[in-house]
Amino acid sequence: MSTPVLQARDVSMVFGGLTALKNVSLNLDEGKIVGLIGPNGAGKTTFFNCLTGLYTPTTGQVLLKGAVLPGDPAEVTAAGVARTFQNIRLFPSMTVLENVLLGRHVRMRQGPLASLFHGPSFRRGEAAARDRARELLAFVGLGKVEDELSRNLPYGDQRRLEIARALATDPAVLLLDEPTAGMNPQETEAARQLIFRIRDLGISVVVIEHDTKFIFTLCDQVSVLVQGELLVEGTPDVVRGDPRVVEAYLGKPPEEVEAELQAVQEGETP
């Protein structure tokens, strides 16, 4: 098997005295979709923040195509990891097109002087960026609203715009934080199709989601995070059948789950 595109090795994150993540590992193979599920507060978004350089893991490493990712979000994006946010964070008073163009920022090379003088190469680059941005807007289905202010878009469109903005950075890996939160079934289905089409572009995808049904029908691999630790990982079928997941995720109150988890842990680790 080839090296995974994105690899998290034993990532731990400690805030003050609180351990948010404990030795979480994840392998993402090229062209695959990996799902990350878990109850609220399981550390999914914290893990995302570690993958994107927003947090530097207390211990452990994140590697992109075998190289350790830098500890700065801007550089991580430049290296090829793009993300969306759980609570949509567009630039509200920029237009739809400008939001996507901002995503192109990292792939554009015009420095201050070029930006000042608007020479021919500047204009070529700008035109190319606009073309690419329009292409991406068409790809996510927002071709007609490029001059709207992003804050005026309906909710579902804002989610899609966030994806277009992330795609504009030409990522190798796309991280989607709850892409279907608050969506109705039709929109959820459209989102699933969109994610498949993104995968078909050769981009590997990690998805955080609460909606287990959505995850199990979307992903090639699923990891379950509970209380900051990796509980199970495997194909949807494996994960779905795992009794611990059912218990942890659906069944029991957190205290019991925690106790059981500890029992499981003690049984597993020598």
């Binding site: 801007a74 793009a82 964070r89 567009l90 630039f91 509200p92 400008e98 995503g103 990292v106």
Partner: peptide, 17 residues
């Protein structure tokens, strides 16, 4: 555009590169 993005949401601007 990057300046305006910083004005609007600095963290996201950074996350976008």
């Amino acid at each position: 555009r990057a300046w305006i993005a910083i004005r609007e949401d600095e963290d996201v601007a950074r996350a976008m590169g």
